[in-house]
Amino acid sequence: MDSAISIEAGGVARGDVGGASVLLRLAAELVSGQIRVVDLTQTLAPEFPQISLPPEMGQCWPFRIEEVSRYDERGPAWYWNNFSCGEHTGTHFDAPIHWVSGRDLPRNATDTIPPEDLIGPACVIDCTAESAADADFLLSRSFIERWESVHGRIPARAWVLMRTDWSKRTDPVAYQNYDETGQHTPGPDAEAVRFLVEERQVIGFGSESIGTDAGQAQYQRPPFPCHYYMHGAGRYGLQCLANLDQLPPTGAILICPPLKIRNGSGSPLRVLALVPA
């Protein structure tokens, strides 16, 4: 039995294992270092690559920051900034309402999502080699099944994170990986998404590149299948994740609450993972 499943079996909600509160044990293990906290977030900065749509379409704001004062005539004893960005800037969360397929679902926006959905186990599927070999690599159902054959079945209500090491591309040009036919980044194919949604009941899908879908996903059927099926089923997306290489294939707990924006389609957020040391 792998650890993801054992946590599931342990049942956080029961709250009591072996006489000690799970939460107290968690606190103790965090202090003792038995549980490590891994930051899966990219730093919000103006130069961080931003999704780019055809110029005649509406555009999501990149992260921008303007100094309000810095212990100067604009504010003598304090330093602070104003920043602006889109809901889908930097490491960010996609709510079901983001996609047209999820627009009519209940509790589909950042302010209404059940909060318990924002903490859950993570399964990390390593596609590093495949993505390095082919930037347009598509994660398939069979690839997932092979992963399950090694690491066990993906439990229901788990996050599936596609590790590509794309976040290690610190050069924006390499990260965006554009050519005249558009962006070339890895992502899942339609069948894989349907499998995760319908047969594994995942809570969401996360990626390291811009978009839970592949760079060329507009040519898939349906276009942008991860957005289409995940959000259509009320599931979530996480994008521009980092440090997935520090997570075990199973056994990590993901904490990813977006900002509580009224009727928000998503938000930049801090994504943390609890990992057994």
Partner: peptide, 10 residues
Amino acid sequence: VPLDLTDSSS
């Protein structure tokens, strides 16, 4: 040279 007029820091 990198220059984005929407980005003060740039």
